[in-house]
Design a protein around this nucleic acid. Structure first.
Length: 578
RNA sequence: UGGGAGGUCGUUCAAUGGUAGGACACGCGGCUCUGGACCGUGGAAUCGGGGUUCGAAUCCCUGCCUCCCAGCCA
């Protein structure tokens, strides 16, 4: 596999070829390669990513973005950023800005090839007039309900509209007046004259234009008629000289219409539409409607809630864009319906973070530990490696003193088999510091453990014993008086059901424990000056990033993903077996 | 007796008439100052039935199952 280029993976700086083991091409890349070999488009490859600016981008869009920009880059081609903005009622400038920011963050660059379907409205209008002149489009006065009734059903053919045979002159006149605003909304539409008996419902005289008085975010009130998707999309592709128009499976039925429009108008460029299966992810929903519900009804804090599968959510969660691109490479490209295990995504995230994140020690649930034989008031600094995967990351000093905090989960008064951590009388290693032995357990009136008394072996400084004795566990810690207090947000999957999208009501499957906030975490002082978005590995716990809610005197971390946890798995099986 | 698309390990993607393979997940072992990482290893699949062929996941016939389509959304 080829990890995308380091910097922004624009249309020209991706590795052209995986020199070495040639991994097989997916079916779309195979078609593109064959077209290139056949000189089909004069050796040109031009794609586009055409979102409607009516929502935030999510991981499913990332698959399409990586495909479109990737295919173009692999052949020195181009990929246009195009907004399919033909429905002013649903769209908003907020989304056009957010979408561009997300794609840039993902690592792609469209240079000066930013396009809007709305820029083509005048040309599109001209094409519509041409269709009318050819006698293959007509103005219909039927209401929406009538059109639906006339359309027939899946198994029975439709009926032709009584207005289907209006003269070219009358259609031209009516359509001109539609544009001029002479008719109220929804009173007339322009329809293609194709075949009301077609088995493909999209070919039963599809609507091409509707009257809709709405202020468009780019064209304002200049238009009161707006073109429909099928008409706009095919022609926009053609206008932009696109060679391969890649879209998802549900548009397969639209391809005959796509081709009809371009053939009927005999345009110079007729791109080929190729459909691929959209991405589904286990334990998450990716439908715009459902994501909108989560936001609107307050189940999450917003589009950028770290539990959301949106690109903004993942960014805030701390997912590196490289990991998302790697994920998109790995899931493959096919036409079969699929549900990718979210573990594949998490694995890509861990892999990237393991390679790049500086290590730091933090204690989520502090348990006070006093080292009895360590001199009161003494402080020393131990050396800690910043990233064992990257020697260039260097080392840092971590203060050690008499009173420390350990993770509550790292102590067990009555340890079960295979629990290697601290227990009464047991010796363990404190990471980068000393071996300590637990000599006493202090409890409060409720019987809760409030403090541990330990001793340390001064000869084990640095973490190893001169006599060669071993310990079975190494624990993370922080010096109580030096540690910073931080708030940490622990995220878990938003849904408990593996396929929440298949339920009538996905909300029933919501995980009530998808967010846990801990306000009393302690982190080592080296993270005092951090910036929003900085990523760390909290040793033995997971990867965390600095949330924008952080201020100069209050740190907030999001847990991006936990480390793989073998002990948790062992504990789970032991519990299951009783 | 509508049209379109698709069925390969648990999941996902390969193999395009010639040893069914990778990744993730899972199991076992090793190593380790992170029960992380890493290394090794194991189990695990061609929807069913016929046919063509020396040889079929792949070609043919047939049956079954799944998904998409009846917005003046995209």
């Amino acid at each position: 596999m080829t990890p995308p280029a380091k910097g922004p993976a624009g249309t020209s700086d991706l590795p052209e070829e995986d020199t070495g083991s040639a991994s097989p091409l997916d079916f779309i890349r195979a078609i593109v390669a064959a077209d290139l070999a056949a000189k089909k488009y004069k050796g040109r490859v031009a794609t586009r990513f055409p979102p409607e600016p009516n929502g935030y981008l999510h991981i499913g869009h990332a698959k399409s973005i990586c495909l479109n920009f990737g295919v173009a880059a692999e052949h020195g081609g181009t990929c246009n950023m195009r907004f399919d903005d033909t429905n002013p009622a649903a769209e908003d400038i907020e989304y056009v800005d957010a979408i561009q920011a997300d794609i840039r963050w993902l690592g792609f660059d469209w240079g000066d090839r930013l396009r809007y379907a709305s820029d083509y409205f005048e040309r599109l209008y001209g094409y519509a007039m041409r269709l009318i002149e050819r006698g293959t489009a007509y103005v219909d006065d039927l209401t929406a309900e009538q059109i639906r009734a006339y359309r027939g059903t899946l198994t029975t053919p439709g009926r032709e509209s009584p207005h289907r045979d209006r003269s070219v002159e009358e259609n031209l006149d009516l359509f001109t007046r539609m544009r001029a605003g002479e008719f109220p909304d929804e009173s007339k539409v322009l329809r293609a004259k194709i075949d009301m008996a077609s088995g493909n419902i999209n070919m039963r005289d599809p609507v091409l234009y509707r009257i809709r008085r709405a202020t468009h975010h780019r064209t304002g009130d200049r238009w009161c008629i707006y073109p429909m998707y099928d008409f706009t999309h095919a022609l926009s592709d053609s206008i932009e000289d696109i060679t391969h128009s890649l879209c998802t499976l549900e548009f397969e039925d639209h391809r005959p219409l796509y081709d009809w429009v371009l053939d009927e108008l005999a345009v110079a460029c007729h791109p080929q539409q190729i459909e691929f299966a959209r991405l589904n992810l286990s334990y998450t929903v990716l439908s715009k409607r459902k994501l909108l519900t989560l936001v609107k009804e307050g189940y999450v804090s917003g589009w950028d809630d770290p539990r959301m599968p949106t690109l903004v959510g993942m960014r805030r969660r701390g997912y590196p864009p490289e990991a998302i691109r790697t994920f998109c490479d790995r899931i493959g490209m096919a036409k079969r319906e699929n549900v990718v295990d979210v573990a594949v995504l998490e694995h890509a995230v861990r892999e990237e973070l393991n390679r790049t994140s500086p290590r730091v020690m933090a204690v989520l649930r502090p348990l006070k530990v006093v080292i009895q034989n360590y001199p009161e008031g003494q402080v020393e600094e131990v050396d800690a490696i910043n990233n064992p995967e990257d020697p260039a990351a260097g080392t840092r000093k971590v203060p050690f003193s008499r009173v420390l905090y350990l993770e509550r989960d790292d102590f067990c008064e009555d340890p079960p088999k295979k629990f290697f951590r601290l227990a009464p009388g047991r010796e363990v290693r404190l990471r980068c510091a000393y071996f300590i032995t637990c000599v006493d357990v202090v409890k409060n009136d409720q019987g809760e453990i409030v403090e541990l008394k330990c001793t340390y072996d001064p000869a084990t400084r640095g973490g190893s014993a001169p006599d060669g004795r071993k310990v079975k566990a190494t624990l993370h810690w922080v010096s109580a008086s030096h540690a910073l207090v931080a708030r940490v947000r622990l995220y878990d999957r938003l849904f408990l059901d593996e396929h929440p999208g298949e339920r009538r009501d996905s909300l029933e499957a919501l995980n009530p424990d998808s967010l846990e906030v801990i306000d009393t975490c302690r982190v080592e002082p080296s993270v005092a000056s951090v910036a929003t978005g900085d990523r760390y590995q909290f040793e033995r716990l997971g990867y965390f990033c600095v949330d924008p809610d952080s201020t100069d005197d209050s740190l907030v971390f999001n847990r991006t993903v936990s480390l793989r946890d073998v002990w948790a798995r062992i504990a789970r099986t032991m519990k299951a077996r009783g």
